[in-house]
Design a protein around this nucleic acid. Structure first.
Ligand code: FES
Ligand code: FES
Lengths: 151, 151
DNA sequence: ATATTTATGGATAATTTTGTCTCTAATTCT
DNA sequence: AGAATTAGAGACAAAATTATCCATAAATAT
């Protein structure tokens, strides 16, 4: 559904929201290891998430690293997709027509639109905070290591 | 959601099902133009759909071309995904975990699984015949040309 | 038989995505 | 001020996807 980059972005953001804070920032090494993603590629992805403190914040130097402000934790998960420039995935025609619309719908449109509506809603109503708290509460994973790495 | 290749496969298959028959086979040129896809690439995709007469059938020579048997029209749309080797897309973890499961679910799993269930159902219950008949009945498009190319 | 038509198969090219590496900039600590 | 630490930025490399081209095989028509 999403690109690898966006999948890593989702996992990294939720991980930082749950494990980090402004007082306890997380380094790129820890993040990449925790979510099971290639380190350097993840660093590049973080640059997209941090520009203008869009979703994630970053500070350089000793004790620096990444964190998410309490305010940003209230952003919908969709904000991550937007930062990655992949929010369109939710609006795309499932059969690849240039434009999904009622005017010129593809053969799957009438059925698919009902499903997509729920999908869009999921990404809009769920906040970063809510997803990260799920990790705290129950048995939820952000990476599956050898024996499954629960955080 | 799907690769370009699979999107073309979906459109091509539905188009052939609606416009063609064993008596009136369709050539690759007509198909590619009708669905708005690159001709040569589409030819490659047809090879995946036609091996073992999996979904589409093909015959060479004059008056040759592609068609879909009445039997194959009863296949679920999912059969197209399978021929393209992309059926896994429907089963994938939305956050990119190696395995989507109840044992080690990602933070979005509990909500997403409900949506995915409907998505899978859509591809399983809808047949190629049903989709192509929708084109016949109503105002449904398989390609959006200059002014929208209805077929 | 020969020419014509149409899909098939293989090689190759272009583009996008994924991933790495290194040097630089900012920050902190001593 | 200088050393250490951490993210940022850019060039680069590898892999996957998308796309093109051409020679070949099969079928038909003459
Ligand atoms: S037009 Fe295809 S999903 Fe809306
Ligand atoms: S584990 Fe992520 S969707 Fe099921």
């Amino acid at each position: 559904m999403f690109s690898k980059a966006t999948e890593y972005a989702l996992r990294a953001t939720i991980y930082i929201a749950q494990k980090g804070s402004e007082e306890n920032k997380l380094g790129i090494n820890e993040i990449a290891e925790a979510i099971g993603s290639p380190r350097s590629f993840t660093a590049k992805i973080m640059q997209l998430l941090t520009r203008d403190h869009r979703v994630v914040s970053a500070v350089r130097g000793p004790n620096g690293g990444f964190y998410i402000s309490e305010k940003s934790k209230n952003l919908p998960v969709r904000a991550i997709l937007e930062a990655m420039g992949e929010e369109h995935v939710l609006d795309k025609c499932v059969m690849g027509l240039k434009l999904c619309s009622e005017k010129q719908p593809c053969p799957m449109h009438s059925k698919y639109k009902i499903i997509r509506k729920q999908l869009i809603k999921l990404f809009v109503v769920k906040t970063i905070r809510q997803l990260s708290s799920e990790i705290k509460d129950g048995v939820v994973f952000i990476h599956q290591g050898k024996k499954g790495k629960k955080i």
